[in-house]
Design a protein around this nucleic acid. Structure first.
Lengths: 249, 249
DNA sequence: CCTACCAATCTGGTAGGTCCAGATTGGTAT
DNA sequence: ATACCAATCTGGACCTACCAGATTGGTAGG
């Protein structure tokens, strides 16, 4: 995956802007301060602010009206899925509701993905999945973290559905959870359990057994989310309202 | 929806860069020319190029390695869904396979959305849907285009699922088809047929009739895509490989 | 007092320049 | 063939300047 570099000023400006929107509770249609004022506030150049605004525009969060101002196009919660990845990378917190929705959506999307994979998977898909599981097993044996390999495997299953849009939909849902995925897979017990599931996934896809595959998705994803939830509640400071905040690793 | 402004240099730089990647058939891991060279090629300032690269970074298409270069992180087809919206807004074409996948994904996602909507919709959701249909009916009566209203209605149905992630997933799938949606709804016959479907949607959601609702989604979406496909093939120049290219309106 | 109008001001868009420090690279000396 | 070092290239950030249209506030006219 990506090596966590230090955030550039441009990215910091994105973070500051999102925090500004949050803090001032700006709503759809509200106007942001001018680029010049934002650059003053944030202590960066207008160039950096403009870079950030270009990103927020791309995410459909803001709209820059020439000679007029910067306006909020959507509430933070209405932007595209890619903004979740960016928020996660910037260590911005998610609320409980978002995490619940992500969990539910992932089950729905991945269930369909694996159903399609059972129906349409090619031998090449199957071989790739077997390779990935073998590699996964090696790493589990070597007591290594498999957070990245887990994402790789799940995306490979999705790819076997032969529908690139489904893959592109699931990708951000995985990437946004990179932080706590790392924590989740720090447990050897969990790694072994996960490996067993993956092996079963491959078997069901090989047999084109949609029903068993779909059931397995439910179990696999739900248990993962339950586990993470439990971990978060265990480590949680009592006064923290948000157990899903990204953690530095 | 959004008024199509003239593209800024920053957006043009995005377009030029994507075209560059396409034209030179760059693959994952390949290196792009330096910012300075791109700004020369495109005839814009480095600032504009940097704005564009910030966007492509956010879309997970490129990766900027400080003091090293710009590298392709993903193939164009592996980026997030939001990039589809941007490509559509820049009048960049989609290939047939993407459109097929979008159609399939939309049916899957929206079917689940409406199932959840049947189970969970509140009275407020229902009222909003009725309002939207009433407005829709007025516009059909007045022989007005209902492209935007159609999106609004479908997103409102998705919102009734009480899962924001599903809404955020469907949104780009609608927005990317803004161009030909406009054409599709230029036909009064289609507008009337669509209105009838929407009225039936509301009825099924009111009755919480999941089965009928799901069946209706299949019919509604498939017929729409078939229609658009037929329209595109009809107007198509024989040598065009791509009938999904965005059209100016 | 209200309205119409106009000029100063503010805004985003773009250009062009500078400096920095680390990565890359190619040639040189060993 | 290898080790090393200096010139070069790269992205990151800052700064100033200009443009033209949108906005706005005050003024003149009704």
């Amino acid at each position: 995956m990506t090596v966590p570099q230090q955030a550039s000023e441009g990215s910091r400006a994105v973070k500051r802007t999102i925090e500004f929107i949050r803090h001032h509770r700006l709503q759809k249609g509200d106007r942001l301060p001018s680029e010049r004022e934002l650059s003053d506030r944030f202590g960066v150049t207008r160039s950096s602010v403009r870079e950030a605004l270009a990103v927020l525009d791309a995410l459909r969060l803001t709209e820059r009206r020439p000679k007029s101002g910067i306006f909020l196009r959507n509430a933070l919660e209405d932007s595209g899925l890619d903004s979740l990845v960016i928020q996660a990378n910037l260590d911005l917190p998610f609320d409980e509701r978002t995490m619940r929705d992500v969990s539910e959506a992932r089950v729905i999307f991945e269930t369909h993905a694996i159903r399609l994979a059972c129906a349409r998977r090619t031998d090449a898909d199957l071989n790739r999945l077997r390779e990935l599981v073998a590699n996964y097993a090696d790493r589990v044996q070597a007591e290594l973290n498999v957070a990245n390999e887990d994402v790789e495997f799940h995306l490979a299953m999705a790819a076997a559905s032969q529908n690139a849009i489904i893959v592109r939909t699931l990708t951000p849902l995985f990437l946004m959870s990179f932080q706590w995925r790392q924590k989740y897979f720090s447990s050897p017990v969990i790694r072994r359990r996960s490996l067993a599931d993956h092996q079963e996934f491959v078997a069901t896809i090989a047999d084109r057994d949609e029903t068993r595959a779909a059931a397995l998705v439910q179990k696999h994803v739900h248990s993962a989310f339950d586990e993470v939830r439990a971990m978060a509640e265990g480590n949680e400071q009592p006064e923290s309202h948000n157990q899903w905040e990204g953690q530095d690793q």
